[in-house]
């Protein structure tokens, strides 16, 4: 799966207009579908495995403490003799869940705010101010503040990643909606007596849906990375629950004894999930971007 994701990333072609279009191995659309398949397989695989792992496989087993990666324990074992492959999978399942939730909440917020801002001038001003406020603090500091305000724990993480990822997509949507509404064909439609609802459905939605879908996918990797960061600092998921951030913060203490695999593999898993969604979202955006031209 690693190779595939990298292939997809490598295959992305630049598109400078004056250069003769070079035939790439994959069309933009195929690439989007392929990277989507990779991302979804990865996530579904993680979720299914996480759901079917029997509860007692993570037993503490002193006989298998601190084993380096081998065929029996692909990712090695931790200080308590638990298999790191299983722990990583469970934690990734949890990350995917939180990421999904954050992406849903943030996308819904962006759609609402972006659309409201594009129709009403007062609302536009308010949303603009809110956007500037949210972007005024570094994202991670904002996450810490929201997590703190929500009282920390799982609830804090979920609220923090869910409530802070909307400004950029809202900006894109507002921009796009204003562009479409100012266009000639919308003016003509209105002149012909079409209702605002008809205009919104036939002219606006086809432009916005691709942006919303791509934005949704692109929020995902950032949400799971931020969740891991918060949990790593101890401001998120409590230590007894599976989480990549928790695993990594444990491994920080074990690094001095040379147990590198405790940090390496879980982080790599997180990176792969995030990367697959980033590539998928980027190619989705390219495939649906009318300015991209090459299909």
């Amino acid at each position: 799966m690693t190779d595939l994701a990298q292939d997809v990333a490598l295959a992305e072609e630049p598109s400078f207009p004056s250069e003769p279009v070079r035939r790439s191995r994959l069309s933009v659309r195929r690439r989007a579908m392929l990277s989507g398949a990779v991302a979804l397989t990865l996530v579904l695989g993680v979720l299914i495995v996480a759901a079917f792992i029997p509860a007692d496989t993570l037993r503490v087993n002193p006989a298998t403490r601190m084993l380096a990666p081998s065929l029996e324990h692909l990712f090695g074992t931790d200080l308590l003799g638990r298999d790191m492959l299983l722990r990583t999978t469970l934690a990734l399942g949890q990350s995917v869940g939180i990421g999904l939730f954050a992406a849903v909440v943030s996308t819904a917020l962006s759609v609402m705010l972006g659309l409201v801002a594009s129709v009403n001038r007062v609302a536009d001003r308010i949303v603009g101010v809110a956007t500037e406020l949210f972007l005024g603090l570094p994202h991670f500091v904002l996450l810490m503040l929201v997590a703190y305000a929500a009282g920390g724990g799982v609830r804090g993480v979920i609220l923090a990643v869910g409530l802070t990822h909307w400004p950029r997509l809202a900006r894109v949507l507002r921009h796009e909606a204003q562009r479409v509404m100012a266009s000639d064909y919308v003016a003509v439609s209105r002149g012909l007596g079409r209702s605002p609802l008809w205009v919104a459905r036939r002219h606006l939605l086809p432009h916005l849906i691709p942006q919303i879908v791509a934005g949704f996918v692109l929020i995902f990797p950032h949400a799971i990375l931020h969740e891991a960061g918060l949990s790593f600092l101890g401001l998120g998921v409590p230590p007894h629950l599976p989480s990549i951030g928790v695993i990594l913060s444990e491994s920080l203490r074990a690094l001095g004894s040379g147990l590198w695999w405790l940090a390496f593999f879980p982080g790599l898993g997180l990176l792969l999930v995030a990367l697959s969604f980033e590539v998928f979202g980027e190619s989705l955006r390219r495939a649906t971007d009318p300015d991209e031209g090459v299909a």
Binding site: G229, L248, L270, L271
Partner: peptide
């Protein structure tokens, strides 16, 4: 998309 803190651990 790399978690910076993970790279720090490495």
């Amino acid at each position: 998309v790399s978690p910076g803190f993970w790279l720090a651990l490495l």
